[in-house]
Design a protein around this nucleic acid. Structure first.
Lengths: 203, 203
DNA sequence: CCCGCTTGTTCGGAAATCCACAATAGCCGA
DNA sequence: TCGGCTATTGTGGATTTCCGAACAAGCGGG
């Protein structure tokens, strides 16, 4: 039951209240905001959850907020809500990465299902990103030389060849190689290759 | 300009003619079908391209055809066309994997752009799938024992340990290991790990 | 009966791994 | 500024592992 939090952003107080009541009655934590600006003001990227976002609002629109979030690499799932949406708008939102697009009035059960789906997706995404961040932190603490050696190791080259290419002794290569393994928390070159391959292309 | 072919499926002859004319005038090869059944009858999964699919048709509907294609693992990109679509239909189609969803009447330039996007996506997808198929074919020709050894190699274990776990001699492990490398077309365990990691989870 | 899979042996060289010892350079806090 | 600390580089030697080549034998399917 501990998924994360739902952030409801809608300038219609009745909708906000109805949504927070609906979600909380289903055991889902929810917090409401009257505008995109208000949400941005107190948003913390570290809190897991999803966004229930009205498209048509005074001030910054839902789509504007969505674009803003994507600009800062925030990948929190966004479910758009709209009373006057059309097909091109929905298609555009989804193709740009929105999680879902729901018309008002909505079916309570259906909406809650979609919200829970989004929350589960987000918590999985956070696990993946945490692993990637951990990996990045480890890569960070490698020295320049160690990174060079690591790349050549990952290219499948023998220590001897690496030594040649870098103009250093094989023994020195071994030292760097051992440091790389230690800092990356692996014991063999194979593990290192898998560690980096699996989390590649996640940017 | 050699992208692939566009398969137009629509039961309205005027639309079919207009679409094929439009596409061909832009240098995109197109072929029209009057029904989902007719398309299925002469469809070849090996031909690169995309599908321009009307949703509302007599007989099998566009959505039915879409589902049928997904059932047989056909991942050809599908752009839905509809004259009477609504938001939930569009959202549902996209969330189930449709490439795009366009309302009639459509803007010619816009539609051609989307078609070309889909064609480019498909040709890239085919490259990826060809690589994956090649990999699968290589894995296929490994013997059971070779696969076992390969897994342990990928677990980063030493030949000695592998020999212990399989209850065979180290030398025999080395033979299998060498066969694996040969059949998989790699020269080191690191390359093997990268080959398998990069094409994992592409199902 | 031949072929491929699996298994085994022996030999030897190449490569990787581990250890101890050590020197140079830069950086940071006392 | 001086004394650690780390990164980087080096040497020499010992041990382990990897790998290629050659030879061979049991076994099961076509």
């Amino acid at each position: 039951m501990k998924y994360g939090k739902v952030f409801v952003v809608d300038d219609d107080e009745a909708i906000r209240d109805a949504l927070t009541w609906l979600l909380q009655s289903r055991g889902v934590e929810a917090e409401a905001f009257a505008s995109a600006e208000e949400f941005l003001g107190c948003w913390d990227a570290d809190i897991a959850g999803c966004l229930l976002l009205d498209i048509r609002m005074s001030g910054m629109s839902g789509l504007d907020l969505f674009d803003r979030l994507r600009e800062v690499q925030a990948r929190i799932p966004v479910i758009f809500l709209t009373g006057h949406g059309d097909v091109p708008m929905a298609v555009g939102a989804l193709k740009r990465g929105a999680r879902d697009f729901v018309e008002k009035p909505f079916n309570d059960n259906d909406l809650v299902d979609r919200v829970i789906e989004a929350l589960e997706w987000d918590s999985q995404r956070r696990l993946d990103e945490a692993a990637a961040a951990d990996l990045a932190a480890r890569l960070e603490q490698l020295t320049a030389r160690e990174r060079q050696v690591m790349e050549l190791v990952l290219a499948g080259k023998l220590n001897k060849v690496i030594a040649d290419e870098l103009g250093i002794t094989m023994r020195t290569v071994e030292v760097h190689r051992a440091h790389v393994f230690e800092k990356m928390g692996v014991k063999t070159a194979v593990e290192l290759a898998q560690l980096l391959s699996s989390h590649k292309g996640e940017r």
